[in-house]
């Protein structure tokens, strides 16, 4: 490890704010890219299933 202590790692000789902001933004973009299709896909599937169920119920009635 290049840094000797946690404090040094956090401060990065004065550049800590910039580096850590950039890394946390990078992490959130990656997380969004993963969660967005998963959650969106789940909603869409539930929607399709509801619709299929409705349609089959209508067919039964006929």
């Amino acid at each position: 490890m290049y840094f000797d202590s946690l404090g040094e790692l956090l401060s990065m000789q004065g550049h800590g704010f910039y580096v850590w902001t950039a890394y946390s933004l990078g992490f959130s973009v990656l997380l969004w890219n993963f969660l967005s299709p998963v959650l969106h896909g789940r909603r869409q599937r539930a929607h399709i299933k509801r619709r299929l169920r409705r349609e089959s119920a209508r067919e039964h009635r006929l």
Partner: peptide, 21 residues
């Protein structure tokens, strides 16, 4: 990049943003 790479001779530690940028 964040923990083990050495700092840059001119930019110090701020260059570590490169590993995301």
């Amino acid at each position: 990049g964040l923990l083990f790479a050495p700092p840059d001779y001119q930019q110090g530690n701020s260059y570590r943003i490169i590993f995301i940028h």
